[in-house]
Write a protein that binds this DNA or RNA. Structure first.
Length: 256
DNA sequence: ATGGCTAGAGAGTCTAGA
C-alpha cells in the first residue's frame, strides 16, 4: 500500500507545525506541497529533518508559488518545471518517480489576476499539463497528478454562491480543460470514492469554514491502472480547524 | 461578488490569493 497526499500550505514557514501534525496523523509515503511562498533555500528543512522524510523544494523569489515533495520512500525528481514553463520562472511543478509511478505535484495558476492574459496563462498551463499526462498514458506508465488545480470541476464542487460564474475557478474554459484530463483516462480519486459526499478542500479565511462555504479545488488524478488499485481517499478536514491554519486542507489517497 | 482575512514584500500600502 502506498499513501499519496497533497497539501497547499499557504506559506511553509508559517505551517511547519501543521505539516508535522499532518504527517503524524496520516503517515503519507509521499506528500506534495504547494504555495511554499519562499525561496528554495528558505525552505525550513531543518525543522522537518527529524521526521525522516527526504525532501525537494522548488521555491521562487518574491514569495509566490513554490512546490515541494516529501517522501519517506525513495523517490527520484524527474522535473522541476512543466515543459513550456522553463523560462517563466514560476515554481508550480515538480515530478518524481517513486514506487514505480510517475507522480506530479502541481500548483495550477489561479487565473483571476492579470486579466485575460492571466486567464489564458492558466488555460495554456492546463493544456501543457494534459500533454505531460498524455505522453505518460501513451507509454502505459502508472501516473498520478496531485495538487492545487484551482478548478471546481462541477457545480457540486463549491458551495452555492461561493464564487461568481465569471470566476476563473469555475469558468467553462477551465472546467473543459479539467475534463480533458478525465477524457484522457484520468480518474478523480476523491470523486470516484465519494461521488455524493466529497468534502471541500478549501475554505476562505473568515466565516467560510464554520458555515462550510468551501470549494473542492485540490485533487488527485490517477491513471487507469492506479485507479484500479485505489482503495481509499479523503480530505483531512481537521487540519483546516486548527489554529492559524492554511486555507486549504490536505487530500490523501491509498493505492494497493 | 468580495477582500470583511492572510501572507509577502518592505516600509506605505500594494499584489495576490480563490
Amino acid at each position: 500500500m502506498t499513501r499519496l497526499a497533497t497539501f497547499n500550505v499557504n506559506s511553509i514557514r508559517r505551517r511547519v507545525p501543521h505539516l508535522r501534525r499532518f504527517l503524524a496523523r496520516h503517515n503519507p509515503d509521499l506528500v506534495f506541497l504547494q504555495e511554499l511562498k519562499c525561496r528554495t533555500e528558505e525552505f525550513p528543512a531543518l525543522e522537518l529533518a527529524d521526521t525522516g522524510y527526504e525532501l525537494r523544494a522548488v521555491g521562487q523569489p518574491g514569495g509566490r508559488n513554490g512546490v515541494a515533495v516529501l517522501g519517506r520512500i525513495p523517490f527520484e525528481v524527474t522535473a522541476e518545471t512543466l515543459p513550456g514553463d522553463e523560462a517563466d520562472g514560476q515554481a508550480r511543478f515538480v515530478a518524481v518517480r517513486a514506487a514505480g509511478m510517475d507522480l506530479a505535484g502541481i500548483y495550477l495558476p489561479n487565473g483571476n489576476s492579470g486579466g485575460e492574459d492571466g486567464f489564458g496563462y492558466k488555460l495554456r498551463w492546463m493544456e501543457r499539463l494534459a500533454d505531460w499526462v498524455q505522453a505518460r498514458l501513451d507509454a502505459f506508465a502508472p501516473v498520478a497528478v496531485l495538487g492545487d488545480f484551482n478548478v471546481c470541476p462541477t457545480d457540486a464542487d463549491l458551495a452555492p454562491g461561493a464564487l461568481p460564474p465569471t470566476d476563473a475557478l469555475v469558468r467553462p474554459e477551465s472546467r473543459a480543460r479539467f475534463r480533458m484530463l478525465l477524457h484522457a483516462g484520468m480518474t478523480d480519486a476523491l470523486q470516484a470514492l465519494h461521488p455524493q459526499d466529497a468534502p471541500y478542500t478549501y475554505w476562505d479565511y473568515g466565516p467560510a469554514f464554520e458555515s462550510n462555504r468551501g470549494l473542492r479545488i485540490d485533487h488527485v488524478l490517477l491513471s487507469p491502472e492506479l485507479a484500479e488499485r485505489l482503495v481509499a481517499c479523503g480530505v483531512d478536514v481537521a487540519a483546516r480547524a486548527e489554529e492559524q491554519p492554511s486555507d486549504h486542507a490536505p487530500v490523501w489517497c491509498d493505492v494497493r
